[in-house]
């Protein structure tokens, strides 16, 4: 029983990180129809900012702020430089563009920073753990859960009560009509990228605080997980992305925790098998986007 609860805490922490990642992809997809595979490189940028600020000896709180700011700006730059010119092109063009951005950034990191992993100095507190009742919970797990809750509450408020947020929801439902109502396409799309950059920044801090290093290719795994989570939840749906992220986190942790030892080697295929199974039952994902319903199924 105690193990089950302990593993559930682990699942919440991992699922929360996946949820933030999937949200970052979903926000951009809901408005532009673009799956931004360079989302992972935003995290890498955040990681390098953490590394350089750590080397410069800045206080950790300031470092985190700068890392999140840098990913937000980088996301907006990415939109301005790479995605605006192909905004009206086909989905495939945009997808390939995002792959290109991702690869170009990786090679730039390799050539101008280092091909090798660079250590990120983290406060000792993040490696510690606290005892709550009979459990031992890592501080970085608690932070991951707290950060997820804060970000979800913030996003909910932003989307419901902020003008830009409401405009983004309108654009996600029907971009053409939203524009006819006087919503500026440029600002909505830039806003979506900024938000996705913000989420990438928070996710980057959580991700890097676990691995304590940053390397040029580190963005690949998180973006892959985010993609799976976003599809599982329902591509383009923000609530779906959160549900998909948590579902993926729970699947991964529970399989790693409770699968018999002989089966552990096949953990990943089994996990993906479950995802496929869910999609067979719910082809549009757990919580499909409203706009998708008219087009498919």
């Amino acid at each position: 029983m105690e193990i089950l609860l302990q593993q559930t805490v682990n699942a919440f922490a991992l699922g929360g990180t996946y949820a933030l990642l999937a949200l970052g992809l979903a926000i951009v997809f809901s408005i532009m129809g673009l799956i931004n595979f360079a989302h992972g490189e935003l995290m890498t940028i955040g990681g390098y900012v953490l590394m350089y600020c750590g080397l410069a000896g800045l206080p950790f709180a300031l470092t985190v702020g700068l890392a999140i700011l840098s990913t937000t700006l980088a996301a907006m730059l990415m939109e301005r430089i790479a995605f605006r010119p192909v905004r009206n092109a086909s989905g495939a063009t945009m997808l390939i563009t995002s792959f290109a951005v991702s690869m170009i950034l990786q090679v730039l990191f390799q050539n101008f920073i280092s091909v090798r992993s660079q250590p990120v100095l983290l406060p000792q507190l993040l490696s510690d753990s606290v005892r709550v009742g009979g459990f031992i919970i890592g501080v970085n797990k608690l932070l991951a859960i707290a950060a997820t809750v804060v970000m979800l509450v913030f996003l909910d408020w932003f989307m419901k009560h902020q003008k830009t947020g409401i405009a983004m929801r309108a654009a996600a439902e029907d971009f053409a009509v939203a524009r006819l109502m006087g919503i500026r396409a440029n600002s909505v799309i830039a806003g979506a990228f900024a938000l996705s950059g913000l989420l990438a920044g928070v996710a980057a801090v959580l991700w890097v605080s676990q691995r304590a290093s940053v390397d040029p290719l580190m963005g690949f795994t998180p973006v892959l997980k985010a993609f799976i989570a976003a599809i599982l939840g329902g591509l383009g749906s923000l609530r779906g992305a959160v549900a998909g992220g948590f579902a993926l986190g729970f699947i991964e942790i529970y399989l790693a925790a409770f699968l018999p030892a002989a089966w552990q080697e096949f953990r990943d295929p089994i996990g993906l098998g479950i995802v496929v199974g869910v999609l067979l039952l719910r082809p549009n994902g757990l919580i499909p986007a409203a706009s998708l319903k008219a087009q498919k199924v």
């Binding site: 193990i3 302990q6 593993q7 682990n10 922490a13 991992l14 992993s117 031992i136 890592g138 797990k141 991700w207 676990q210 691995r211 304590a212 290093s213 390397d215 580190m218 795994t221 998180p222 991964e252 942790i253 529970y254 790693a256 925790a257």
Partner: peptide
């Protein structure tokens, strides 16, 4: 990236192993 499920299982062993050996490298090892 996430090893919490595995480490929770090791932590639940009684008695604890004297030595844990792995050839995992970055980023897995940290």
């Amino acid at each position: 990236q996430d090893f919490s499920a595995i480490t929770t299982r090791i932590a639940a062993l009684s008695p604890q192993p004297d030595v844990v050996m792995t050839s995992a490298y970055e980023p897995d090892f940290p």
